[in-house]
């Protein structure tokens, strides 16, 4: 069980986002993804989530290739988009139900509720519209976890929410990692990255981030410049 990324390239027109990017992620590992705005963090995550296609390079997850085993892989990946991908007009319960219906695994109501409770998302019947930002973020993550993915990709899951919710989400991610899941997530919060991540992957052309993490105790995954 391992995610292996080799020589990945992606460009939008003439604008090269990243080139020749290689790294791997082991089970139980939380990898932070950092870089300046526009460095391609979200692009990388959406490629890993199969939402976008890479121009070149190979990705394998558990020896299954992204090009050929798409169907199989879809079951194993969870993706938390940066924007809230939830129905505003529905309640928490209805959101969970809706996505559970379209998901790979059948889960009953108790299991869905349990999933939310694990994340300290207690407001089960309330419409999403009236939830706080932190609650919405939690729901956004919970929906992605319905089908028990092995690889969880989170795009700024903690942006703009309070410290308490942030810690709760962090604690939950650690718990997931201890179950053997692979987690890749992006964030701009250095403290959070330091406390959560086993490793940090730094992309982008700006040396600023690389310098920061060279001094940090976290193992640093350099990328070829």
């Amino acid at each position: 069980m391992m995610l292996i990324v080799e020589k990945l390239s992606k460009s939008y027109g003439k604008n090269m986002i990243f080139d020749n990017l290689s790294f791997n992620v082991h089970p139980g590992e939380i990898v932070g993804l950092v870089g300046e705005n526009g460095a391609g963090k979200s692009t990388l995550l959406s490629i890993l989530a199969m939402v976008q296609k890479a121009d070149a390079g190979t990705i394998t997850l558990n020896h299954q290739c992204y090009q050929t085993d798409k169907k199989e892989l879809r079951r194993q990946i969870g993706f938390v988009p940066q924007d809230l991908a939830i129905w505003e007009q529905l309640s928490v319960k209805e959101n969970m139900q809706f996505f559970a219906q379209l998901s790979w695994v059948k889960k009953d109501m108790a299991e869905l509720k349990e999933l939310c409770l694990q994340m300290q998302l207690e407001k089960w019947d309330e419409p999403v519209k009236s939830l706080s930002g932190g609650m919405k973020r939690k729901l956004n993550i919970a929906i992605s976890l319905i089908h028990d993915p092995h690889l969880l990709l989170l795009d700024e899951p903690t942006a703009g929410i309070d410290l308490k919710s942030r810690t709760e989400i962090g604690r939950y991610l650690k718990q997931l990692a201890s179950q053997g899941k692979m987690i890749i997530y992006t964030s701009h919060d250095m403290d959070e990255l330091r406390s959560l991540c086993d490793r940090v992957l730094c992309i982008g052309k700006d040396p600023f981030y690389k310098n920061i993490f060279h001094e940090s105790p976290i193992p640093f995954l350099a990328i070829p410049d």
Binding site: I77, G78, L84, A85, F99, S103, W104, H147
Partner: peptide, 19 residues
């Protein structure tokens, strides 16, 4: 067809097309 939710279909049993 909200873009944020569209990305979820990549991980679901039904692709957006099938949906």
């Amino acid at each position: 067809k909200k873009t944020a939710i569209l990305s979820r279909y990549a991980m679901m049993k039904y692709s957006y097309q099938q949906y």
